[in-house]
Write a protein that binds this DNA or RNA. Structure first.
Length: 174
DNA sequence: TCAGTGATTAGG
DNA sequence: CTAATCACTGAG
């Protein structure tokens, strides 16, 4: 199987600011409807750090939607935005330390809403465990990512201080 | 620049 | 129950 290369729990149980740059260049593996495995290199991601980050959905506390972010790292946090797009997030850190990585882009697909639509990721993936799931996980690629950082997108409501944190990480030149 | 679209949330 | 909000996208 592919369990040899699959990233283990330890990878995800670290601070989101350490995990986010490292997930760049790694493979997001998704099983399609016909059972075929597809691999996509992660190109663009953002860190959300609930314990202090005003832009993080978990900042205001535990709700049914944000519940999974309070669990240990490796699970998926999925939510619908603007009534149309599913957002794919990977929970990181220890239990009760809500953090997550928004997957903003993968190879051949730019934009968090477009990539979930293309990969068939929806609400049914909420809470899925990347360490155990048979239909979605992350694999090491052996690639050492060369990346840049910048402000996160679409979080004006969080105010200048949090808006300007350079917590978006993206691969340079594809 | 701006509308589409509906789950989620806080509040009465 | 109501109403506001929204980690986006594509058209113009």
């Amino acid at each position: 199987m592919n369990s040899v290369e699959r990233l283990p729990r330890d990878f995800f149980i670290r601070d989101v600011l350490d995990v986010t740059p490292e997930i760049l260049g790694k493979f997001l593996v998704v099983r399609s409807a016909n059972g075929v495995l597809n691999r996509f290199s992660v190109t663009d991601a953002e860190a959300y750090r609930g314990s202090e980050d005003k832009a993080c959905h978990a900042f205001k506390g535990r709700t049914p939607r944000t519940e999974i972010m309070f669990h240990k790292g490796g699970h998926l946090y999925i939510y619908l935005i603007y009534g149309m797009y599913w957002m794919l997030n990977i929970v990181t850190g220890e239990e009760n330390n809500p953090q997550a990585i928004l997957i903003r882009g993968v190879e051949n697909f730019s934009g968090p809403g477009k990539l979930t639509k293309s990969l068939g990721i929806d609400k049914s993936f909420y809470g899925e465990d990347l360490v155990l799931s048979e239909r979605i996980w992350i694999e090491d690629s052996g690639v050492k990512p060369v990346y840049k950082t910048g402000p996160r997108i679409g979080i004006d409501y969080a105010g200048d201080y949090w808006m300007n944190k350079p917590w978006r990480y993206y691969l340079i030149n594809k």
